[in-house]
Amino acid sequence: MLITCPYCGPRDVIEFTYQGDGNRTRPQPASQDLDAWNAYVYDRLNPAGDHNEIWQHSGGCRAHLRIVRNTLTHEILSTAFARGGHKSAGHKAGGNQ
């Protein structure tokens, strides 16, 4: 299984770490809304199909990524930086030639 890191290009899945469900919304740290915290910690869509996920390219550039993976086929439908703002985002082969 290959994941195309937006910085590094296609890499083996062994270089990546799953960081969890990308659909969750974390309440404000000071929030005392127990239902919101309960939903953040426990509620999962668990779809049989496309799933928003957070991964980290922990064995490469170490960027956190927002990935859509199909849970039935393991197809990676899209990858993007979890945090925007970096201009040199798109993968190029690099080099000084």
């Binding site: 910085y7 490469g60 550039c61 170490r62 970096h86 201009k87 040199s88 190029k92 690099g94 000084n96």
Partner: peptide, 25 residues
């Protein structure tokens, strides 16, 4: 060094070298 922009871009001239290894790094 004429360090190029772009993911993983780099240059080496023998005595000195530079390359990108992560976004902005």
């Amino acid at each position: 060094l004429a360090l190029p922009d772009g993911a993983g871009g780099g240059i080496s001239n023998g005595g000195r070298a530079a390359f990108g290894f992560a976004p902005g790094k």
